[in-house]
Design a protein around this nucleic acid. Structure first.
Lengths: 180, 180
DNA sequence: CACAATCATGTAATTATTTACATGTTTTTA
DNA sequence: TAAAAACATGTAAATAATTACATGATTGTG
């Protein structure tokens, strides 16, 4: 999916919260934000370079120990403007939820097909794991429901949990219909 | 997202059901399968050519009227084998659900932010529309719950509806929390 | 202290995907 | 019957994304 520039805006958003390194940005996709977008370091580093060239961000070198260098990127006013423009632009079309399991399922026409049950149970395990992990994240990051700092972050985590819960429920129902 | 070959397998699966043209394959992504993967004709036609070269499919020319030619592709035994291999290979990792709206939401830290409510209501409308459309599809394609031909197709449509329902519910709850 | 894991940053090659360019036919509708 | 919509198939150029190649430093652990 060559989605127009989305990664650039995610990076702007993350850098806007606080100055970060390419390594930290890469890590961000292991966490909650990774539920809704993915990127590898090999995509991130060249993009940071381009964004700095376009004067959306700047960096400052940091050194740990003798030699280990790190570039900590900060957002510029131009970068903040572009981030704001993106945020203000309404989202009028929905992305496809790419899901390889669902596609395989589509091609299984026979309710009696022996592949169905193992596929569904494997998938249920995966989504239960994911749901549990997200619930742990919620407990860890938002222990006090009365004091939520990053409201958007809270909302998307809540949404991810709800989505996984729904996915698990559908799988569970399907399995029980099948085994009935 | 350069997802390994998924489109190839989707095409094999669709051609396996019945011989189809590139145009029909393109159209398939406007319908239910498009909830879980997307492709344009500019990706499909060259891929069909490559797949025929790899002897996974063959085509037969059809003519309508005087000149309008159409290539109707059929699957070969090699193609069927590759499709079966793909179907039997367990899906062990989940795709990210790319969602640009959710990403924007992530960066809105303040519960009082004026952009929040319009974003949420716009998004609710989109997902309600999608849910309604999918429900219409369900009624049209599977009018008789007792006689379901393509069980996998039925399941993924059910899942898509459930997903949209959950999305709408979450948005509705969020909006009502916000306006309370 | 040796080894493993993690930190840290890049580039190259390949593949996937989108957007734009390009052309012509047939069917439907006003 | 003229125009619009849908049918039908392709290629080219650009962008996005993955996988592999490449290197080295620091920290934690046994």
């Amino acid at each position: 999916m060559a989605q127009r520039n989305t990664l650039k805006y995610i990076i702007l958003g993350l850098i806007n919260e606080r100055p970060v390194t390419g390594y930290e940005l890469t890590k961000a996709f292991d966490s909650d934000i990774g539920e809704f977008w993915l990127a590898q370091h090999s995509q991130i580093y060249p993009l940071l370079k381009r964004m700095e060239h376009d004067q959306l961000i700047t960096h400052q070198l940091e050194v740990t120990g003798e030699k280990l260098e790190r570039k900590r990127y900060a957002i510029t006013p131009d970068g903040q403007q572009e981030l704001a423009d993106w945020l203000n632009e309404p989202v009028t079309k929905l992305n496809a939820n790419k899901d390889e399991f669902i596609l395989k399922l589509y091609f299984i026409r026979d309710r009696q097909d022996g592949r169905l049950l193992p596929m569904l149970t494997t998938q249920l395990q995966l989504h239960q794991q994911k749901r549990n992990h997200l619930q742990d994240q919620m407990a860890q990051k938002f222990p006090d429901a009365a004091h939520i700092e990053a409201y958007g972050h809270f909302l998307i985590l809540q949404h991810a949990i709800s989505r996984e819960q729904d996915y698990c429920q559908w799988l569970t129902n399907t399995i029980s219909n099948l085994t009935a």
